[in-house]
Design a protein around this nucleic acid. Structure first.
Lengths: 150, 150
DNA sequence: TGTGCACGAGTGGGAAAAAGTGGTTTCTTG
DNA sequence: CAAGAAACCACTTTTTCCCACTCGTGCACA
């Protein structure tokens, strides 16, 4: 079972290629033999999601099956399904991010790749740091979280 | 069961390596055979958390399982999971702090390592002393704490 | 009680290996 | 036929691992 952790600063070159860090590449190799699915994130943060293919294939039917009379559901479907792109790495372990997605997440040269357990998130560096600084807020948290002791 | 106490002033060299004090190294050796996980702290204090691996593996599933439609949960996950880095010591008992984390906690040369029972905290010396001065706070406390008699 | 020796902890640097980068050519597709 | 993508190759930079040195502490013996 895949388990992505940690954050990595990476660069995208002029052709839109980005080199997956070697550590992550290993995790991906064993999680999905390098077959990944890249898509847009649905929440207010404009980042991309990177799923190992098997993980995506668990999630995809669930999204498709949601009753879509609801507006939030339609939004989720349009973003997640409508942006999904299967990817494979080149011989140097790089992937080519489609312009649509590059644009959606405002990706320029400097990016951050963030491990989130089953998946990874891909952020523009600028937006990632902005997000870190911003939301220190005391949002209300669910009881499961209040009970945690770090 | 691990039980880290006390504080230690330590230095990080130019390559981002830091020597774990011998005393702590012994505790770590028996708690986790030297296998530790380093991650970011979730609250407003920008310090790092040092977990013995077994301790981290208790915590990690709990964090991953939180319902992440909630904003505070996503923040916690991005910080804790998204910064977690498994570490092993080199032959001299040093660990290499990843640049991302070094940056997050504003670590420069002089650091403080603070025992917190089942984990350790790693602070920039400057920020540690600043925090000591500042936080005399009269926050409101939970009933468990009110009941304490020191 | 003071001096010196020895061991262990901490520090720094250097060499080998691996990872990341950029460009060129070939292939595919519109 | 042109434009963009994929594959390949070669180079540069970073990382990692290991070894050697120094500093401080403690112990022993004079």
């Amino acid at each position: 079972m895949s388990n992505f952790l940690g954050s990595h600063a990476i660069n995208m070159d002029a052709k839109g290629r980005l080199a997956i860090p070697a550590k992550v590449r290993e995790s991906l190799a064993q999680a999905c033999a390098g077959r990944i699915v890249l898509t847009a994130n649905a929440d207010e943060e404009r980042c991309l999601l990177v799923y190992p293919e098997p993980e995506w294939e668990i999630l995809r039917p669930k999204i498709e099956a949601l009753p879509n009379m609801n507006k939030a559901v339609r939004r989720l479907q349009r973003l997640l399904l409508g942006n999904a792109a299967p990817m494979e790495m080149d011989s140097a372990g790089r992937i080519l991010v489609p312009p649509t997605l590059r644009n959606y997440a405002h990706l320029e040269k400097k990016l951050m790749l963030i491990g989130q357990g089953k998946k990874l998130e891909l952020w523009s560096e600028e937006r990632w740091f902005a997000w870190l600084d911003e939301s220190c807020g005391d949002e209300d948290m669910p009881p499961e979280m209040e009970a945690l002791s770090l």
